[in-house]
């Protein structure tokens, strides 16, 4: 069974067709990159996959559940249990330390565990920054905290909307390395990016244009990973 299936979905805002007739499936542990010009519907698609929005038409099946039919309460639960989110802007809760930000995700999920949260931070190389507030961290560090937070509840699917868009090259490399190792461990990843280098690391690259999939490119990675 595929982890995620988008069946003929469209999203219409007034007279703007943000997405039109999208069909896409993501397998367990698969890494997919989404590329496309600005306004092509990438974020709209991520919001739908991330259970934060519903399509106007079509169905989205995440791990066997059709989310287009669920209540927003159920969507919150699905998002919490199955998805790790990483944003382009480093969205951290500004009055909580790095460690507390990670623990907040645990808290909303089930029960916070400081040791585990610290491990997640050291995984992204930030063990020594645990007690820092977001304002005391660099952009790259903040993004890494977001990644630690995204993976703290062992999501089946990591969604990242332009995670390296605001980072310098050094930090981009660090983030990419983390993604690679997550992928190796079996997490499915959907990443929106403008960066061909980032896209190159994925197994398939989906190109969006005017709300439609114009091309799906196979990056021949599956064999290399095995």
């Amino acid at each position: 069974m595929n982890l995620l299936e988008l069946k003929n979905i469209s999203k219409i805002y007034g007279d703007v067709k943000a997405l039109q007739n999208i069909n896409l499936s993501v397998g367990q542990g698969e890494w997919i990159a989404i590329m496309g010009p600005s306004g092509s519907g990438k974020t709209t698609m991520m919001n739908i996959i991330g259970c934060m929005d519903k399509p106007s038409i079509g169905s989205v099946i995440l791990d066997g559940t059709d989310i287009s039919k669920e209540s927003s309460k159920k969507l919150t639960a699905l998002r919490r249990d199955k998805i790790g989110l990483i944003f382009q802007q480093f969205h951290l809760i500004n009055y909580l330390t790095a460690l507390e930000n990670v623990m907040a995700a645990q808290y909303y999920h089930s029960i916070q565990d400081e040791k585990e949260a610290l491990e997640a931070l050291s995984r992204v190389g930030l063990a020594d920054r645990a007690k820092h507030l977001p304002s005391q961290l660099s952009g790259g560090e903040q993004q890494r905290v977001c990644i630690a937070r995204a993976l703290i509840n062992y999501p089946m699917l990591i969604l990242a909307d332009e995670p390296t868009g605001n980072l310098d090259e050094a930090n981009e490399a660090i983030v990419l390395d983390i993604f690679k190792s997550l992928h190796k461990e079996g997490s499915a990843i959907v990443v929106v990016t403008h960066d061909p280098e980032v896209a190159q690391e994925s197994e398939r690259t989906v190109i969006l244009e005017h709300g439609k999939i114009s091309k799906i490119k196979d990056n021949n990675k599956s064999e290399a990973l095995c």
Partner: peptide, 11 residues
Amino acid sequence: EIGLKKALGAT
């Protein structure tokens, strides 16, 4: 901040 918390799964 509220949107973020909800995105993280806060009810």
